[in-house]
Amino acid sequence: MDNAQLLISGLANGCVYGLIALGFVLIYKATEAVNFAQGDFMMLGAFVTIGLTNTEYMGLPFWLALPISLGIMGALGYLLDRLIIRRIFGESQTAVVILTIALGFVIRFAAGLIWGHEPQTLQNPLAGKEVRFGGLVLGMEDVAVIVVTILLTWGLYVFFSRTKLGLAMQGASQNQLAAYYMGIPVKRVQGFIWALAGVVAGIAGILFAAKGSVDPTTGLLGIKAFAAAVIGGFGSLPGALAGGLIVGVIEPFASRYIAAGYSQIAPYALLLVVLIFRPNGLFSQVRIKKV
């Protein structure tokens, strides 16, 4: 019974990691750049929503604040690409990496300035409620996180496999040159992908803030999500989610069964093992190109 409880809370955490990892992979696949500010984006999404809903700030109704903050996050992602990332297009990968790390710092301090450095929780209609399921007592937030992640995954799947824009995004990430030849406006599509990554980060942030507290340094969680993305196989969307879930589930079990000092390194130890035995990740989509 205890184990089941651990599993559920681990899965809920893992969903948040998975969603951040998804953001990493979305941008990596489309632009071959790694956005190390993805974790801070998640944090920003949480704070934007807190700023809109919590009574000490604007106090908007929760369900109204949701679409607004996701809209803001999408717009921020798009503008980030449009105004900053696209300027250094063609520079080395390192330039993009350093730029996004720096952006992470900027976002962290800006959030601290606006909302303060104290941990805060998102006031939401689900807070404090419980679901009893068999002998399990589950936090409503944990259940909501898992349900939302499943819905979002399904939604993204439909979007990428059925809609024209989704297919174009896939195409632009698989073969950029061919996408140009097909008349796909690649740069605009990449902008949309940044926007989508912003929205996904926003959702992750809202879920995270609903089940625990956030402060401006929460974005450092991005490192863990990055490990999750690598475990899953950088470049595979289902892999990113699975990697997130694996990391999320390992954590509570490690802290329960392994001595306190060692439990925290469990996800990274797993990362090392995966990198040694399956360097492309567990769910990689690497294929050799035919000539």
């Binding site: 496999s161 024209k164 297919l167 174009a168 896939q170 195409g171 698989q174 073969n175 040159l177 061919a178 996408a179 030849y181 097909m182 008349g183 796909i184 989509q285 294929r287 190109k289 000539v291």
Partner: peptide
């Protein structure tokens, strides 16, 4: 004007059908 590039440049992880759909993107 459509350009069929050298070296084929198909979208490798997408199905034949999806490749054709992207050809009609415009």
């Amino acid at each position: 004007i459509v350009h069929v590039p050298e070296g084929r440049e198909v979208f490798p992880l997408m199905t034949v059908d999806e490749n054709l759909s992207l050809g009609a993107y415009t």
